[in-house]
Amino acid sequence: MIELGRLKIILVEAALETIPPSIASHPVVLKNAGKRGKSPHEILLDVSIHYHAMKKLPLKHKRGRPDIIHLSLLEALESPLNKTGRMEIYIHTIQGHAIFIDSSTRIPRNYNRFTGLMEQLFKEGEVPPGSEKPLLYIKTMPLDSLIKAIGAKGLILLSESCVQSSLDNVVGEALNNGFAIGIGGFPHGDFEEDTVKQAAKCYSIYRDPLATWIVVSRIIASAERLLGIL
């Protein structure tokens, strides 16, 4: 059993963003925004809705998947590890925004409500707006600045292309050395070069790609075993 340590997770290059200006006037986007009574710039990019509008976007294969973040946050914030105060989770989006999440936050289980919450966050900068202690707030900062801001001594990146290691070894190293664990928050493709440069270590926990929320779940379960929580 590990006595000390707090698990820090960063969902890296997360596919969470509002509609980019370059496609804000696309008919598909305008129709969706009008249906919801919002400006195109205020709604989340979602490939299941905006697929045709996204065809010419750079890195389109890695964008427009808020559901990945939704499922991952549900896994993390409802876990015994979080409820015992032994976990922190952050988001760093593909557009360079850092999202800070209070551990007491209860993410809506309903996807549409989650979407509305994230849209409010991007518009207002914090949720609830004007709160002295917001549950969520967003800042524009590079990944290395986020790593420093959360007090992590480095980043362990998880990628199937890196050296194979067991879950418990990876999590144990993170807990013992104060590293954050970076998990890709996008559906397809590899980490960008700038992301890889920020990693102190890189490990693979499985030979093939795994869904983000599955990795989050397994990492948390390992930490709970090592810390004697479950």
Rank of each mutant, 00 (worst) to 15 (best):
182 G>M: 01
22 S>Y: 00
45 L>C: 11
177 N>K: 12
53 A>W: 00
209 P>G: 08
188 H>Q: 06
218 R>M: 13
5 G>Y: 04
103 S>C: 01
217 S>V: 00
204 S>F: 02
27 P>H: 08
114 F>Q: 07
117 L>T: 11
221 A>Q: 13
114 F>S: 02
43 I>N: 03
142 P>V: 13
140 T>N: 14
77 L>M: 04
62 K>V: 03
21 P>L: 00
131 S>R: 12
6 R>K: 15
193 E>Y: 02
82 N>V: 06
27 P>Q: 10
20 P>R: 09
161 S>E: 15
216 V>K: 04
156 I>A: 07
75 E>I: 09
170 V>R: 12
68 I>D: 01
71 L>W: 01
23 I>C: 04
90 Y>T: 08
151 G>C: 10
80 P>G: 00
130 G>W: 12
135 L>H: 13
127 V>I: 15
24 A>G: 09
58 P>E: 02
117 L>Q: 09
198 Q>M: 14
197 K>F: 10
227 L>C: 05
208 D>H: 14
128 P>Y: 02
29 V>W: 01
181 I>R: 02
166 S>G: 14
22 S>P: 00
221 A>W: 04
160 E>D: 11
82 N>Y: 03
96 G>V: 06
180 A>Y: 07
223 A>S: 14
195 T>C: 03
157 L>V: 08
188 H>A: 13
139 K>Y: 09
94 I>H: 04
58 P>A: 07
9 I>K: 05
210 L>H: 00
16 L>I: 07
168 D>W: 06
56 K>F: 06
137 Y>C: 08
58 P>S: 06
141 M>L: 15
123 K>I: 03
200 A>M: 02
197 K>N: 12
113 R>S: 13
142 P>N: 12
125 G>I: 11
110 N>T: 08
123 K>Q: 14
164 Q>I: 08
129 P>S: 13
131 S>C: 05
66 P>Q: 07
137 Y>E: 11
18 T>R: 08
142 P>K: 06
2 I>P: 03
39 S>H: 08
18 T>C: 12
223 A>H: 10
128 P>N: 11
40 P>K: 03
183 I>L: 08
183 I>Y: 04
88 E>K: 11
135 L>S: 12
121 L>G: 01
47 V>G: 00
120 Q>F: 01
155 L>S: 04
226 L>M: 08
166 S>F: 01
59 L>N: 15
3 E>L: 10
52 H>N: 08
182 G>D: 01
48 S>C: 00
54 M>V: 10
21 P>K: 11
226 L>P: 07
178 G>A: 01
31 K>N: 10
218 R>Q: 13
145 S>K: 15
23 I>K: 10
35 K>P: 00
112 N>F: 12
38 K>H: 04
56 K>D: 13
177 N>Y: 05
69 I>P: 00
186 F>H: 03
95 Q>V: 09
75 E>M: 08
212 T>S: 14
18 T>K: 05
9 I>W: 05
9 I>G: 02
221 A>C: 01
30 L>R: 07
230 L>E: 15
144 D>A: 10
56 K>M: 10
166 S>C: 02
198 Q>T: 15
24 A>E: 12
171 V>C: 10
27 P>Y: 10
161 S>D: 13
169 N>T: 04
165 S>K: 15
225 R>P: 01
146 L>Q: 07
74 L>H: 05
132 E>I: 02
141 M>D: 12
194 D>M: 13
198 Q>S: 14
153 K>A: 09
61 H>N: 11
124 E>T: 06
151 G>W: 11
39 S>M: 05
95 Q>C: 07
